[in-house]
Nucleic acid binder design. Structure first.
Length: 417
DNA sequence: AGGCATGATTACGC
DNA sequence: GCGTAATCATGCCT
């Protein structure tokens, strides 16, 4: 009631405005008879209060009458003003928020993934980029990519149809509420500004729903990506030949198993894998070898023999018996046994009878043994360390001591000639 | 199914 | 940028 008296007080000035409502003889009569604006307003309010007690038709008629009352615009504006000052001004503070950074992030991601934005091939570019970034082997699947694209297109379609649905619902709801409020503004104090605010509130509600949609779409894309494009998920073992090539290089460069960039490229080409895969392989190999030399001993022996056999064969073919015991007297060979003790572990094991070989390999083993004697300086490097300590630990400049790679075709175990 | 092997990734140091 | 060490995730064998 306190409010009411304030309103009445506020209206006291307005009521005196010379606006005789000729369409409403009743009010004219009352004003004439009472001569008091306050009483006039009180009368109006009484009529408003009494509306609920009347029948529908009567109420409608009364509403219409009140609507046309000359006091109505003034009363309306004052009530709006009061409302504005009390309730809405408090709310207004937190309304003007800046564009949500989270929704911007989601938008950017969806754009980057090819879900939102223009159609044009959609996520295929993103897929290719991701595959390239993952260093995936070139032989892996266009099938998987098309599968990925199909799934991405599906997500995209769902996203867009949902988005459209939300937008439509939002505008429908907004229109509905606006019409309702406009309608109601004839009978209760609702300013256009308030309608605007209400629209803003509705939009925010819907945009939070939209954000959820975007978020779940992002999640779906991430899952899809991880399933199809994460290199670890589609890890395939290298084929036997590739592993052999890599192992040959590794064991024949055991003292310094750090292939140069050119050697890596050559190995990559030979194995049908990427340079970064070669790097990964050597990284893994070094660390695993170092961790458990014993486990790799047999493998090392095997490759030493293989290398020796190859070397012996090539040497025999090339030099036709003049110097049969020194197959690797060349100066620039990539994996030659005579080089700086590369196969130290292999040779050590050979001397120590760590494994058995077929009789056909015996001559080559003998050759190796001979080679050991010729390179006697390495015999005291008994097998605790995988490489001479100064080589492994002195990592100041590994590339500078990397064995030279000769002709491109000589990356793996052949002799340098 | 469980364990080992293996290719890739990540964090960190230089 | 490269190497190491640790770790992850998958493949493969028993």
């Amino acid at each position: 009631m306190d409010d009411q008296t304030r309103i009445l007080a506020g209206l006291s000035g307005l009521a005196g405005l010379p606006q005789p409502d000729l369409g409403d003889p009743d009010s004219v009569r009352k004003q004439q008879s009472l001569g008091q604006p306050q009483q006039d307003i009180g009368d109006i309010l009484q009529q408003i209060m009494a509306i609920t007690d009347e029948s529908l038709d009567e109420a409608q008629a009364r509403k219409h009458a009140l609507n046309c009352h000359r006091m109505k615009p003034a009363l309306f504006s004052v009530l709006c003003e009061i409302k504005e000052k009390t309730v809405l001004s408090i709310r207004g503070i937190q309304e003007e928020d800046p564009p949500d950074p989270q929704i911007m992030r989601l938008d950017n991601m969806l754009l980057a993934e090819g879900v939102s934005g223009p159609e044009k091939g959609g996520g295929s570019a993103a897929a290719a980029a991701a595959a390239a970034a993952a260093g995936g082997s070139p032989n892996d699947g266009s099938i998987e990519h098309s599968d990925y694209r199909a799934k991405l297109a599906q997500i995209r379609q769902i996203y867009h149809s949902e988005l459209e649905k939300y937008e439509q619902a939002c505008s429908e709801f907004t229109n509905h509420v606006m019409n309702l409020l406009r309608e109601q503004s004839r009978t209760r104090p609702i300013s256009p500004k308030e309608i605007e605010r209400m629209v803003g509130i509705i939009h925010r509600k819907f945009s939070s729903i939209q954000m959820q949609l975007k978020q779940s779409t992002c999640e779906a894309v991430m899952i899809l990506r991880s399933r199809f494009l994460d290199a670890r998920r589609k890890r395939r073992n290298f084929n036997k030949q590739a592993t052999e090539v890599l192992n040959e290089y590794f064991y024949s460069h055991l003292s310094n198993p750090y292939p140069s960039e050119e050697a890596k490229e050559e190995l990559a080409k030979k194995c049908g894998i990427t340079v970064s895969q070669v790097s990964n392989w050597f990284g893994n190999k070094r660390i695993r070898y170092k961790k458990n030399i014993g486990k790799f001993q047999e493998e090392a022996n095997l490759y030493a023999v293989k290398t020796a056999v190859d070397a012996a064969n090539v040497s025999a073919q090339a030099s036709q018996a003049n110097s049969p015991a020194t197959p690797n007297s060349g100066s620039s060979g990539s994996y030659s046994l005579s080089q700086t003790g590369d196969t130290y572990f292999s040779l050590h094991s050979l001397n120590g009878e760590a494994f058995s070989i077929g009789p056909s390999l015996q001559p080559q083993v003998d050759t190796l043994r001979h080679a050991i004697h010729l390179t006697a300086g390495y015999e005291d490097l008994s097998g605790s360390a995988p490489y001479p300590p100064n080589r492994l630990d002195d990592s100041t400049n590994p590339s500078s001591i990397t064995s030279p790679v000769g002709a491109p075709s000589s990356v793996h175990s052949d002799t340098s000639n």
